[in-house]
């Protein structure tokens, strides 16, 4: 990289930093909101109390964060996850951080694997790439989270059916939220068309 390129990269990094921070904070807040909603619904969907839900809405925020804001979005959801763990669940800082890291690694790895499979550096935003990213992420997240809980939580016993339920919960969370977003977008469009 030449001196000119280096200067340009540094300049664009500096000019992008406030925006990246904004996206990180936005996704952290969205994650906490989705987590809070999941907790409200936990009496109906929790399979393993406080651990595995059949409708885990933050999974949707994780998928959207990387698609929209890349690494800045993932940093945001990791921060949101750690904050929820410490402030709301009363987890130890190390446990909350390892959980946040697990979630971030799962979505980053899923994104990287899909980019490798599609031989691209930038994932195209299409219906099929979203479906593929969701499927890979849900599988990886269940495996990574299950392993971390198995290692760090003495009460949690890891089993294939628990991992399968966690995967299903993430998948349903993403599908339900995308469905709601679709209904919202189409309603707004119809309303705008009607208004004009």
């Amino acid at each position: 990289m030449g001196r000119g390129d280096e200067g340009l990269t540094q300049r664009s990094w500096r000019s992008d930093s406030p925006q990246m921070l904004g996206w990180s904070i936005g996704f952290a807040m969205a994650f906490m909101l989705a987590h809070w909603l999941t907790m409200l619904l936990s009496p109906f969907f929790d399979v393993v109390t406080g651990k595995i839900s059949l409708l885990y809405l933050p999974a949707f925020i994780r998928v959207v964060s990387i698609v929209v804001a890349g690494t800045a979005g993932v940093v945001g959801i990791a921060a949101g996850s750690a904050l929820m763990g410490v402030l709301h669940h009363g987890d130890s800082v190390s446990f909350a951080l390892s959980e946040a890291l697990a979630a971030a690694v799962a979505i980053l790895l899923a994104h990287w694997l899909l980019c490798q499979a599609m031989r691209t550096r930038q994932l195209p935003i299409t219906l099929w790439s979203l479906i593929a990213l969701t499927a890979i992420y849900c599988t990886l997240n269940a495996v990574i989270h299950g392993t971390i809980w198995g290692l760090l939580d003495p009460v949690f016993e890891i089993s294939p059916w628990k991992l399968a339920l966690m995967m299903l919960g993430d998948l349903l969370g993403v599908i339900v939220m995308f469905g709601l977003l679709r209904v919202f977008v189409r309603t707004v469009r119809q309303f705008k068309a009607f208004k004009n």
Binding site: Q19, M20, V64, A72
Partner: peptide, 22 residues
């Protein structure tokens, strides 16, 4: 940063008629 563009594209994809777009 093109996060806004990505968000716009995501919303377009989610709100489109996938059946007819294939």
């Amino acid at each position: 940063m093109k996060a806004w563009l990505n968000l716009r594209q995501l919303i377009d994809v989610v709100g489109s008629d996938a059946e007819y777009k294939v």
